[in-house]
Design a protein around this nucleic acid. Sequence first.
DNA 1: CCTGCATTATTCATAGATGAATAGTACAGC
DNA 2: GCTGTACTATTCATCTATGAATAATGCAGG
Lengths: 147, 147
Amino acid sequence: MNNAGVETQKAKESSDTTIFSLLRAAHALEDKLEETLNGVGLSTPKYSVLNELNSAGTPLSLSDLAARLSCVRSNMTQLVDRLESDGLVKRVDDPADRRGVKAAITDTGQARYAAGSAEVARLHEDFAASVGAEDKAALSRLLTALR
Amino acid sequence: MNNAGVETQKAKESSDTTIFSLLRAAHALEDKLEETLNGVGLSTPKYSVLNELNSAGTPLSLSDLAARLSCVRSNMTQLVDRLESDGLVKRVDDPADRRGVKAAITDTGQARYAAGSAEVARLHEDFAASVGAEDKAALSRLLTALR
DNA sequence: CCTGCATTATTCATAGATGAATAGTACAGC
DNA sequence: GCTGTACTATTCATCTATGAATAATGCAGG
C-alpha cells in the first residue's frame, strides 16, 4: 500500500496535509524506482546490496551489509538467501572469523548491477531535469529538517 | 529496510544523489509517524483505514477501502482481519450485494482513531513549524514534479 | 584455562504489501 | 430463463521488514 489515500477526505476540505502529501509523493518515486529496476530483474533492496558489494570491491559480512543498508540482520539473511538463489551473490566463509559469513558478488551479479545502475542513472537525470535549481536548495533544507 | 545506505559510496564521492536522499528522508518521516501511532496502539495502515471509515461516517466495502488507500484488495482482506481481531472494526454483511462485505468501525475503533488523530495533528504542527513558508512552496512544486 | 559476555548468522512469528487463482454473486443480453 | 462476463472477497505464494530467541564462536578478565 502506498498510503496515497491517507487523509483523502481532509485533503478535499482543508488542504495542508503536507506530511501525507510528501509521503505519497515519495512513495510514487519509490514505485518508479522499483519498476525501473524490475525491468532488469532487480528489486530496490537487491540493487542496494549489489551496490554496496560493488562499491566495496570485496565480500562483505552480512552484519556489515545490514548496517550499511540500515536494516536488521535477519532481513539480510533472507535477502542474501534470495540473491543467492538468483545467482547474483555467493556466501563465502570468513577465514578470519568462523562465526561470520560474507557475501560475494558473482559475475552475473556484476552484470545485473551494471544494468540496474544504468537505469538508476537515467532516472536520476530525469529527476534532476524536472526539478529547478532553487527547488533543489529547498529540498536540501527540507531533508535536513526531516532528519 | 529504509534504503538509507543506497549509494552511500557514491554520496561520498560525487554528491547529487537527490533521489536516494529524498527517499531516505521520507522513510525517516514515515518511521516517525509509525512510531507515534504505535504509541496509541496503531500502525499507519490501520490508522489509514480507521481514518477512511471515520470520514465516511458509514461502513465501507473492502473494495472501496482498498481503492481509497490505493492498495490491492487482498491486502485489505488481511488488514481488516487484523483490525477485526484488534476489535477496532467489524465485518458486516452488505444487504444490497451478497458478494460484498463492509467494514464498520467499532466504538473502540473510534476511540483509538481519536487518539491517533491527535498524535498525527501534533506531528503535523511540528513539521509545519520546522519548514519555512518559501520551502513549503518549493515542496509543493516538488510534489507536482514527482507525480 | 575457563567463565561470562559480546557478536555471528540463523530461525521463527508477525506485519504489511503484491499478484495470481479461486468461489460465489450480480447482471446484461440473448 | 440461461449464459457469459464482471465483480465480490478470500486464499495462497512470494517479497520485504522487524524483533525475539537460538546456537556457535570470539575474546577479555580472572
